[in-house]
Write a protein that binds this DNA or RNA. Structure first.
Lengths: 133, 133
DNA sequence: AATGATTAAGATAATGATTATCATTTTAAC
DNA sequence: GTTAAAATGATAATCATTATCTTAATCATT
């Protein structure tokens, strides 16, 4: 991850909160938590801050099957097993060397139907926009 | 993919439409297309039919970053590159042997921030429910 | 320090895909 | 053929997210 462009106080607050968490959190949860901590910010600011951090490559987002997005620091590659029925999504350790990951998933008693590997980043037009802007 | 439990006419119609398509489609698009073809069905039926097919392991879903779900037949593993800014998502050929996939993505001029690998299936409780029900 | 321009933030309305609801129809079993 | 179960249609409800618009903060320049 390259150096972050300067963050506003709110953006830094959000970023710092994410640093203290080990699991993914939704924007709504971040909002609730920060309000709990007596920070005065709006929900829209949380969404905007997360978007900003994401465009910096500092934060990653993942969509749960209920349509909710969860955020975390950009980290080592992660592997999830998600139930297509109830939507439960559990993270697994993933070792790219040892492809014994499927048996591990099966040991959790998941019946696997399919999997998806996705890369996220900026497409060329958006990258240019970010670079000049 | 194991044998499908009997499909209702509408479910079969949806399944057959997916068979004729090579790209992912949203439920809304399926609905519009089938209405176009003079099929009399409701939008809710499309969603229910897709859910049913998904629980059979016949259809896979993927959430776009705009929150919309797109569906396709369960197929070979697929790899996508998604822009975190504009949300454009382009499929790539994926060869599990040849890990030259990142260079390929880069050749498309994506600046990659992170990637995610997800398995989808049924968790143990849901699998039992499906089995008995 | 004041000015003007740009960006950030707050509050809240609008959006839109998906899900829930419920009455009705179809299907399947006995 | 009657009954129970499942499927369907139509539409209202949900809810995370985005858009909007006004106000506040920031910052460079004079």
């Amino acid at each position: 991850m390259s150096a972050l462009s300067p963050l506003t106080p709110h953006q830094a607050t959000i970023f710092n909160l994410l640093k203290t968490l080990e699991s993914e959190v939704s924007a709504q949860m971040i909002y609730a938590e920060l309000r709990q901590q007596k920070h005065r910010l709006g929900l829209a600011t949380v969404y905007r801050g997360l978007k900003h951090l994401q465009l910096q490559g500092a934060v990653q987002a993942r969509l749960l099957s209920n349509g909710e997005a969860v955020y975390s620091l950009v980290s080592e590659e992660k592997l999830y097993v998600t139930c297509v029925k109830c939507g439960i999504s559990v993270p697994l350790a993933y070792c790219p060397i040892d492809e014994q990951v499927l048996p591990q998933a099966l040991s959790l008693r998941f019946k696997i139907f399919y999997h998806t590997l996705e890369f996220f980043g900026l497409c060329s037009p958006c990258l240019e926009q970010e670079t000049v802007a």
